[in-house]
Every structure is written in structure tokens, then in C-alpha cells.
Design a protein around this nucleic acid. Structure first.
Length: 190
DNA sequence: CGGTTTTGACCAGCGC
DNA sequence: GCGCTGGTCAAAACCG
């Protein structure tokens, strides 16, 4: 079976899933806080701030507008072990972690979401021309992961799946907000 | 030199 | 039980 389109929805029980189309190749947080003109399936009242200020995929699935193409399936939990035990545990215990998947129309596989990621694997997947890449948050003690895969059906679309909760602030977000916070602190003195 | 990417090997889950 | 598949590890290569 050649060219069989991968399912629009990721195979796992994603917490959230929606499709969007970005004009640029990157997804800088400031622009996300004020989303550009997306020819998207995202509701205009989509809670971007909650999505991005909180850990990715975090929060109440009910807060996601029904008009967004969303799958909600709560799966949250923990996994903390060392070495192979951890590896084993992460596979045996059905990973109960928040997941969040979305698609972007971009030529760039790497989505700049403000966090720093280290690639730890790449794998050819069945029924897909393009490999799936596996990334992990570089922040120590933060075991958030993400998968990136380009659709073979529509090569301009990249599916990004986040898994887990960041336990630290977003560097770029803090970077961009710090002048504003300083200004607010200054003004609050009056 | 330290951090990141690449890539083959390994392992567990799942379907048959 | 076996083979397939997806996810991860880890050593080597690469890069700034």
C-alpha cells in the first residue's frame, strides 16, 4: 500500500489535537500570544495564553473551544526511575502523560516554540515517506518530549506532538516579557 | 570543549 | 511464539 495517508489524528490518545496553518516557519511565542491571521480551524477565542503560559498540553481539556479540532483524552501521571528501569517503566506503564498534537503548514520541521530541545532519535515510520523525529526538553529534570513528523500526503504539513509538562518557564517567553514586567513594576510604584 | 545531532542497536508492546 | 513496529539509548560525529 503506497502513499496511504496517515491518519489526521495521531494514533495515540492525544489530549489535544488541532490543525493550523502558519504563515512563517517559526512559532515565536509573542506572535502566538497574538496569533497571526491563521487560516485555521482554531476558534478565534482559543485560549493561547493558557496553552502557552502553562505547560504544554496542561490544563482542563474542557477549556479548549469546541470549534477547534480537538481530541480530549485525559492521561496524566508520573514516571521517575533511573537507567533502564526508567526506560522499561516508560514503556510498560502506559505512559499517562498529557499529550498535545497539532499540525502546522511550514517548510521548517523545527518549530520554534520558545523551549530548547535536544533530538534523541529519528525513526522511519510505516506508511510515511518521512521519518519521525524525537526531541526532549534540554532543561534538567524536565522530561517533556515532542515528536515531529511531516505528512507524506501533504508535505507542507508537519505534525508536532508534545508530551508531558514543562516544570520550568519558557526561556523566550520570559525573555520577551521581562521588559514588560520591569515596566509594570516601575509603574506600580506610583 | 561542551552541547547537539546522527544513527544503529536494543527492547517492549501488540497483532496474528 | 514470532515478527513487526515504535520509542529510546548511547557512542560517535559534528559544530560553534
Amino acid at each position: 500500500m503506497e502513499g496511504e495517508a496517515p491518519p489526521l489524528v495521531p494514533p495515540h490518545n492525544s489530549s489535544y489535537f488541532f490543525t493550523t496553518s502558519l504563515p512563517s516557519t517559526s512559532l515565536h511565542l509573542p506572535s502566538l500570544l497574538h496569533p497571526p491571521q491563521l487560516e485555521s480551524q482554531i476558534a478565534p477565542d482559543f485560549d493561547w495564553v493558557a496553552l502557552l503560559s502553562g505547560p504544554i498540553g496542561y490544563g482542563d481539556p474542557n477549556s479548549v473551544p469546541a470549534s477547534a479540532s480537538v481530541i480530549t483524552s485525559e492521561n496524566r501521571g508520573e514516571e521517575e526511575k533511573g537507567g533502564k528501569e526508567k526506560r522499561k517503566a516508560s514503556r510498560t506503564k502506559k505512559a499517562i502523560r498529557p499529550k498535545f498534537a497539532f499540525q502546522t503548514r511550514t517548510t521548517n520541521d523545527i518549530l520554534d516554540d520558545g523551549y530548547r530541545w535536544r533530538k534523541y532519535g529519528q525513526k522511519a515510520v510505516k506508511n510515511s515517506t518521512y521519518p519521525r523525529s524525537y526531541y526532549r526538553c534540554t532543561q534538567h529534570m524536565c522530561n517533556v518530549k515532542k515528536q515531529v513528523q511531516r505528512l507524506s500526503k501533504d508535505t507542507s504539513i508537519v505534525t508536532t506532538t508534545y508530551e508531558g509538562i514543562h516544570n520550568h518557564p519558557c526561556e523566550k517567553l520570559m525573555e520577551s516579557l521581562s521588559p514588560l514586567l520591569k515596566q509594570m513594576q516601575f509603574l506600580s510604584r506610583f
